[in-house]
Every structure is written in C-alpha cells, then in structure tokens.
C-alpha cells in the first residue's frame, strides 16, 4: 500500500482545503436558517413566482419553511458542487499528474504491476472523496445541532448519501479520463462537473428537457425527489454505478497498456 499512502499524503492539503471551504460554506448556510425561518413565507411566494428558475432548483416542490427543505436546496447545491469539483479534480489528476510532473518514469520503474498502481491510486481518490463527504456530514450534523433544530437523520443521510454517490461517480469518470491525459486536466474536470450541474438545471426546467436527467448524476441528488420519495431513484443511482464502473475499467484498460515517455 505504499502508493496508496503516498497518494494520501500528497492529497492531504487539497482535501483539507476543499473540505474546509465546502464544509464552512455549508455550516454558514445552516447558521442562516434561524434568521430566515421567520421570513420563509414571503420568500416562498417570491421563489414560487420565478417560473423555470424555481423549477430548475426544485424549489417548487420543497417547503422552505422546514429545515430539510431549506437544506436540500441551499446546502445541497454547496455540497453537490463543492464536492463534485473536488472529486473531479482529484480523479482527473490521479494518473495524469505523474506524466505531467515527470515522476511516472521513477514510479513505474519500481517492481509493481501497473494495475496495482491504478488500484492504489483509485483507492486513494475514493478515500479522499469519502473522507471529505464524511467530514462535511459531521460538520452539517453539528451545525444543525448548534442552531437547536431536531436533526432529520433519515433525510439528511439520504441527501448526503446521494451526493456521496455523485462524487464517487464523477471521481470514477475523471479517473478514467486521467489515464488518457499526459498533462493536467483541471479545466476538463471543472468543466465536466459544472456542465453536468447545469445539465440538471436544464432537465428540471421543462418537460421537453427532462430526458437530460439520464445524462447527469446530479439527477439522483435532487432534494425534492429524494424527500418526496423517501429514497433515492434506484434506476438513476444504478446507472451512475455503471458509469463509475465504466470509468474505472477504462482507467485500467488504458493505463496498463499505455506508453510512458
């Protein structure tokens, strides 16, 4: 597990930073809830009059007056996007950074199979993303407790679970892309994460664009759907799992036969 430990050490600062920023924003958002709670009636009618924009964020189906309704929209976006950017960046750089930084020659002339290198790097990516999600969950729980609200355990865990799946899927896809890159793919990763988020907004806007939900993992993280059904959309989540597996399989297939120079 030498490569795994090495990767974790190398990624520690970035993981801490992204967790602090995303978790900090989320805590801040939860902290605003008591202030906004009393004004939610007015805010609710304001949001309801915003047409497609309201639908895009699922605000037409959520009760802003409840903590979980507020959390699903406001905090969900922070957690979803912040985590997605981190997962995509971590995944896309995992393999490519060795060639970009010219360390691949050193690493791959040690006696360990390339598949082992891929496995340990993948494990490190998934560990970092999971650690971030766990830390943010802990921060969210403590923030909710801090404002004196009852913790809606089931709903909160479902929402965080969905975002964890989303982050895993994005990390897996970007990990697969990483095997093809020889230089940094930060732009590609950010573009992909942001693009998929926008795709979900577009999917929510009209019936005509609803089919787009099959092309973005943000679809199974919709707070309104999860809270209404009390569960994740199993079909979409399974599709996400398949995409994750395809990304990982691509990484193995490509990196194990790739010329390093």
């Amino acid at each position: 597990m030498t490569v795994f430990r090495h990767e974790l050490r190398r990624g520690l600062a970035a993981c801490f930073l992204w967790t602090a920023v995303t978790g900090g924003l989320l805590v801040l958002c939860v902290g605003l809830y008591p202030e906004m709670k009393g004004e939610m009636d007015a805010a609710g009618s304001l949001f309801a009059s915003m047409g497609s924009f309201t639908a895009a964020f699922g605000m037409d189906r959520l009760d802003f007056g409840t903590l979980i309704g507020f959390y699903a929209v406001e905090c969900g976006s922070i957690l979803g996007l912040g985590g997605a950017f981190f997962a995509a960046l971590t995944g896309v750089s995992a393999l490519a950074k060795e060639e970009r930084d010219h360390t691949a020659e050193f690493l791959l002339t040690h006696p360990l199979p390339r598949a082992r290198v891929v496995s340990e790097k993948l494990a490190a990516v998934l560990t970092q993303v999971s650690a971030m999600d766990l830390a943010i969950l802990a921060l969210a729980l403590s923030a909710v407790a801090q404002i004196g609200e009852r913790i809606p355990w089931r709903e909160l865990l479902l929402l965080h679970g969905a975002y964890w799946l989303l982050h895993m899927e994005l990390a897996g896809v970007c990990f697969g892309l990483s095997a093809f890159l020889r230089r940094g793919g930060a732009g590609l990763a950010m573009g992909l994460a942001g693009g998929l988020y926008i795709l979900q907004l577009a999917a929510n806007m009209t019936e005509r664009t609803a089919f787009l939900r099959y092309f973005t993992p943000f679809a199974y993280c919709q707070g309104a759907d999860i809270l209404a059904a009390g569960a994740l959309d199993a079909g979409l989540a399974a599709l996400g799992g398949l995409v994750f597996c395809a990304g990982v399989a691509t990484a193995y297939g490509r990196y194990c036969t790739k010329d390093i120079y």
Partner: peptide, 13 residues
C-alpha cells in the same frame, strides 16, 4: 524491475 536499478536522464521527484 526487481533486479534492475534504473537512473533516468532527467530526474524529477
């Protein structure tokens, strides 16, 4: 690779 010691022309760490 277990039996070889390799010194690359350009060393990066």
């Amino acid at each position: 690779l277990a039996k070889v010691g390799y010194l690359p022309s350009e060393t990066a760490f």
